[in-house]
């Protein structure tokens, strides 16, 4: 496993195992997350890539019978987000997430983006308005919705909804942005939009993305991790992993021989 010393670490997964009841889903996974880089998690379905992503913001805490073992350290202070004394709320305030299926709230476009600020207790109207505009701009949605901010978010198209969800996550300026197959429910044109957006976002954000689309990973991600049956098989720069994989399982997967 290569570690790049020229880049700042944003987070670090250390010996992370995770189980759902008696079923072990992740097996001693370790990997770095670099600042202002996109890290992709790939692998056949059931390999644990989404599970790993959802560990980052403790999504699993919402359900019973889940068990973490190991650490995810948030740099620079090296705070272990999986520690019992860290409230999941804190983790989720610091690490944003966009889901597979666009899930705007049945509220207005404005209120959707403002939601994260509101739950933090931000009341200042001008601040919220600025932040909503900035986030929508970053998500490339501002020009399309600026005239209808009070209209319901559910009326937007699928691709717009997903960009709205991205804006919603950006509004609170998370330290890391998690994307869980953000284009799997979208048509090809919207997918292209989102991919361009993700590349654009790299300038300001650290992104971890789960995808089943290998082209998407190789096109957008700087680093790629290949997972298989709960194990992290290989982690490298996307260039290397997709051109000269070291592990035969990685090679089989990226050449489409299984999964």
């Amino acid at each position: 496993m290569t570690t790049n010393t020229n880049l700042n670490l944003r987070a670090e997964v250390k010996d992370l195992s995770f189980s759902y009841g008696p079923k072990k889903v992740l097996n001693r996974v370790s990997m770095p997350i670099y600042e202002n880089r996109i890290t992709a998690l790939i692998g056949p379905s059931g390999c644990g890539k989404t599970t790993l992503l959802r560990c980052f913001n403790r999504m699993h805490d919402l359900y019973a019978a889940t068990n973490y073992d190991g650490e995810i350290l948030l740099h620079p202070e090296k705070r272990n987000v999986l520690a019992r004394d860290v409230d999941p709320m804190e983790v989720r305030m610091r690490i944003g997430m966009v889901f597979q299926k666009p899930n705007p709230f049945p509220k207005s476009i404005f209120e959707n983006v403002a939601y994260g600020l509101r739950v933090r207790g931000v009341r200042k109207r001008s601040f919220i308005e600025d932040r909503v505009e900035k986030s929508l701009q970053q998500a490339g949605l501002w020009s399309e919705v600026k005239d209808r901010l009070p209209s319901p978010a559910t009326a937007l198209s699928g691709g717009q909804q997903q960009r709205l969800c991205i804006a919603r996550a950006l509004a609170t300026e998370p330290e890391i942005l998690l994307l869980d197959e953000p284009t799997s429910a979208l048509d090809p044109i919207s997918t292209t939009h989102i991919e361009e957006l993700i590349t654009e976002l790299k300038k300001d954000w650290t992104i971890v993305i789960v995808t089943h689309n290998l082209h998407q990973a190789s096109r957008t991600a700087d680093y790629t991790a290949f997972m298989y049956l709960g194990d992290l098989i290989e982690f490298d720069t996307s260039d290397k992993l997709f051109t000269t994989p070291r592990d035969p399982r990685t090679e089989n997967y990226i050449t489409g021989r299984f999964g």
């Binding site: 919402l62 804190e90 989720r92 305030m93 705007p104 049945p106 939601y115 933090r120 919603r168 609170t172």
Partner: peptide, 15 residues
């Protein structure tokens, strides 16, 4: 209420 809406809210740090 769909679970993904609740997840969306929790993911933004809501209590």
């Amino acid at each position: 209420v769909p679970g993904h809406l609740k997840e969306g809210s929790f993911a933004l740090g809501a209590s």
